[in-house]
């Protein structure tokens, strides 16, 4: 059992948990994830480690309530527990001093991006961070990312904060400056990462993306998380989660993400019938 030490709603449908997991906290590195199972009948869900604190023996997970498991997890309070958490899984991000790096985040992908931003800043990089969302309140962790960024640019579709437009618009603006960008990272919804990779391609920039495929074990045993990278089958859980964004077959990946849509709806409808009003999410 993994005890929740704090639980907070940080945006509509987005939740922030710190969970006691000393062994994972002492080993976790930026870019890694955990697989958790909320309860005895639960599914195994991969979630990025948004932060880790070895001193407190806790890890932080930030998730969006999109299906049954995450909706149910959104109702968890401080003192509640998660039955199983295994990790840290996946290969850590490559952190070194590259020069100037462009870090692009969207949705709960910002949570996955944050420890990488911090690691790269500490490694001596100049960090330019671009965080985007539909509207201001959906752009999470702005202060935390700003603390480890030399520059923070916020973009919103509706212009409610920062630049009106998409993260790719900001990418083009930053890349248009004199200062060369050594590397980019983009983490967010698949469609955002796809267009960030295309933009980086146009700008001639290398880009890393963090893939979040459906998984079962998360340790390379089942192959559920496989994706096409440069024409080869790769496992998201052990070969990734980070891949060269230019080499990912995005349409193939997004198709795989739709694999259990019908079943996800059945689960969610059943949960909604049981849990009652979910408008608070």
């Amino acid at each position: 059992m993994f005890k929740i030490v704090s639980a907070e709603r940080i945006a509509p449908k987005e939740y922030d948990l710190w969970v006691e997991a000393p062994m994972i906290a002492s080993r976790a590195r930026p870019g890694q994830f955990v697989v958790l199972r909320a309860n005895e009948r639960g599914e195994r869900v991969p979630l990025t480690i948004a932060d880790f604190d070895e001193g407190r023996g806790a890890i932080r997970i930030i998730f969006q309530a999109v299906g049954k498991t995450t909706a149910m997890m959104a109702s968890l309070k401080t003192g509640d527990s998660i039955l199983d958490i295994s990790g840290p899984l996946g290969s850590p991000s490559e952190i070194e001093n590259f020069g100037t790096v462009m870090m692009v985040g969207g949705g709960v992908g910002i949570a996955a991006l944050y420890p990488i931003i911090r690691g790269l800043k500490r490694a001596g990089n100049k960090v330019v961070t671009i965080l985007g969302g539909r509207t201001s309140e959906l752009v999470i962790m702005k202060e935390e990312c700003a603390a480890f960024s030399d520059e923070l640019i916020v973009t919103t579709d509706d212009g409610s904060e920062g630049m009106k437009g998409l993260v790719t618009d900001a990418m083009k603006m930053v890349a248009g400056r004199e200062e060369p960008i050594a590397r980019c990272w983009a983490i967010g919804p698949s469609i955002m990462m796809k267009f960030c990779a295309l933009a980086a391609g146009e700008l001639g920039l290398p880009i890393w993306v963090s893939m979040n495929p459906i998984m079962v074990d998360g340790t390379g045993m089942c192959g559920c998380c496989r994706l096409n990278v440069d024409g080869h089958i790769k496992f998201g859980c052990v070969d990734g989660p980070e891949f060269d964004g230019h080499k990912v077959d995005w349409d193939d990946f997004m198709n795989r993400m739709r694999q259990y849509k019908e079943e996800e709806k059945i689960s969610m409808d059943r949960y909604a019938a049981e849990a009652g009003d979910l408008s608070w999410l």
Partner: peptide
Amino acid sequence: TRINLMHGYEFPEYDTPAK
């Protein structure tokens, strides 16, 4: 694994689906 470990054959009583 979906069927055995995760009880996919008992979906939706168990959360992991088996098609």
